[in-house]
């Protein structure tokens, strides 16, 4: 499995994260997204005419779009079936819904981060206000989920690829000047994601410390 990868890309990180969580080995092909703009180079456009990262090559099969890649990897390699439960119509519907939501997070919070950090142009005010609107919706959703003892985005006892798809833009939002201080349910969910076994980081995100609440209940 080859991953065409840029270390600081939130969308590449989604794929790296799921591969670590499931335990998929992969080969790194670095694409110099910044400052080299290699994703717009002739050789890369032949692989992906959209000029976007990430992209995978698995045994000659080429797939672009981080969310499509999450669906493919979970379906093909996750024997437990928990990350993308193909037999559960309701959960699959919810996952598709939240993958769409994650796309909107990319084009708001994700764009604001690229604007402030790497000077990639966008309408920064509307990206930030759009991100806050989405984060309010997600925060409320997660709060109701918690009330029903559901710790993840979808109605499923385990995290799914919907959690992986939404997590990076949210967790890196402060690089785009978008504070998470008003979203306590989001912050608790971020801690839970960071405590999933085999969680890995991207520069800008640190692993979570031990869960104090759990320790207290134990003692």
């Amino acid at each position: 499995m080859k991953l065409y990868n840029y270390e600081l890309s939130a969308n590449c990180y989604k794929v790296r994260l799921l591969m670590s969580l499931i335990g998929i080995e992969w080969e790194n092909i670095t694409v110099d997204y910044y400052p080299g703009r290699e994703h717009k180079s002739e050789w890369f456009l032949k692989l992906n005419p959209l000029g976007q990262l990430p992209l995978i090559e698995d045994d000659g099969f080429i797939l672009r779009d981080s969310h499509a890649i999450l669906v493919f990897l979970a379906t093909k390699f996750d024997d437990t079936g928990k990350w993308y439960p193909t037999q559960n119509a309701e959960v699959l519907g919810e996952i598709a819904q939240w993958l769409g939501f994650a796309d909107s997070l990319n084009s708001t919070a994700g764009s604001a981060r690229l604007h402030d950090g790497l000077f990639i142009e966008c309408d920064i005010d509307s990206c930030r206000s759009g991100a806050h609107r989405l984060m309010r919706i997600l925060d409320e959703h997660l709060w109701f989920q918690e009330k029903q003892n559901n710790m993840w985005i979808c109605s499923h006892s385990n995290p799914t690829i919907a959690d992986i798809a939404c997590f990076p833009s949210i967790m890196l939002s402060e690089e785009g000047g978008i504070s998470r201080i008003d979203y306590p349910a989001i912050r608790r969910w971020c801690d839970r994601v960071r405590r999933i076994p085999n969680f890995i980081v991207i520069p800008g995100i640190f692993a979570a410390g031990p869960d104090i609440n759990c320790e207290n209940t134990g003692s």
């Binding site: 840029y6 270390e7 600081l8 670095t30 110099d32 910044y34 400052p35 080299g36 950090g117 402060e174 690089e175 991207i202 520069p203 800008g204 995100i205 640190f206």
Partner: peptide
């Protein structure tokens, strides 16, 4: 370049 960007990305937060 990517090595230094990774280091700097860790300093950022």
């Amino acid at each position: 370049g990517q090595f230094q960007q990774m280091i700097f990305g860790q300093d950022k937060p």
